[in-house]
């Protein structure tokens, strides 16, 4: 009964929350939508992620990125989405002083570090265009929030304990922001210091970034993590970004405006 008491009036009629998880792009994607047509919105989001996976997955031999890496198609034949992602990757490389680079040490292109945040953000825009005002998209721990949760409160997001994945070490309230965490799990996948690929990145175990959207948060979290211990300073210098960095001793460093999101 208490729940209803605090629920805002506008949400009273359609406050039913739908939540669904699917494994796409090699990671669990969870979509939560509040509203009467929540199911349709969720279906649209999953369809979109599948389309992105078909195009950008380096694990799928017939994906566009795989064909590009095999030099089967020339630049003029690239899709609109591919051109956009490659342009954004180049822009991000410039903005991060070279620490974000989709070109792997072996020369192949792997834009997955950018595509994830970009795709989550696009899925969120897609929902927003269709009139959804309260939703949450979580793809492998990177998230976009809008509006409120079922309780009529900002979405509550925990930061995972990098030393014990069943625990959280911070609880945050987000409404309209994106959040992304880079960490040691990703090291083998696509995080390395592009300037010194052989350097082990073991000083920092987790770096969480909150941004105006998940695209911004994700790409800067990836780049800042590759910088090692100075990554948090890089986040501090970015307008509209806040960060929380954890080193291997369990000592956390946070940016000056991070506290306003902490519950």
């Amino acid at each position: 009964m208490l729940k209803f008491k605090y629920r805002p009036r506008e949400l009273k009629l359609n406050a039913k929350l739908m939540r669904q998880t699917e494994l796409i792009m090699g990671m669990p994607i969870t979509v939560q939508v509040l509203g009467q047509k929540a199911a349709e919105g969720i279906t649209a989001v999953f369809d979109y992620f599948r389309a992105v996976d078909e195009r950008f997955s380096t694990y799928k031999p017939q994906s566009e990125i795989s064909r590009i890496n095999r030099e089967e198609i020339s630049a003029s034949q690239f899709s609109k989405e591919m051109k956009e992602v490659l342009a954004l990757s180049e822009q991000t490389k410039q903005e991060t002083g070279g620490y974000f680079d989709i070109r792997k040490p072996d020369g192949a292109l792997d834009p997955s570090g950018l595509v994830k945040g970009w795709a989550i953000n696009n899925a969120a825009l897609l929902l927003q265009k269709q009139g959804y005002k309260n939703f949450f998209i979580d793809a492998g721990g990177d998230m976009q929030t809008l509006g409120q949760n079922e309780q009529g409160q900002p979405w509550r997001v925990g930061i995972r304990n990098p030393f014990n994945t069943s625990q959280i070490i911070k609880a945050l309230r987000l409404s309209g922001q994106g959040i992304a965490t880079s960490g040691s799990y990703e090291r083998s996948a696509h995080i390395y210091n592009p300037k010194r690929p052989d350097d082990p990145l073991d000083e920092i175990v987790s770096l969480t970034v909150i941004g105006p959207d998940v695209y911004q948060a994700d790409r800067f979290a990836t780049a800042a993590f590759a910088m090692g211990p100075t990554g948090i300073e890089f986040i501090e210098k970015q307008k509209n970004l806040e960060g929380y960095m954890i080193n291997r001793h369990g000592l956390a460093t946070q940016t000056s405006g991070f506290d306003r999101f902490v519950i």
Binding site: G140, V157, S206, E236
Partner: peptide, 23 residues
Amino acid sequence: LKQEAISVQSANVDAVSGATQTS
């Protein structure tokens, strides 16, 4: 920048942000 030792929280959350588990 503010520093602190991390501490486990018991708050209920809608979701958890962490490094993508692609290993």
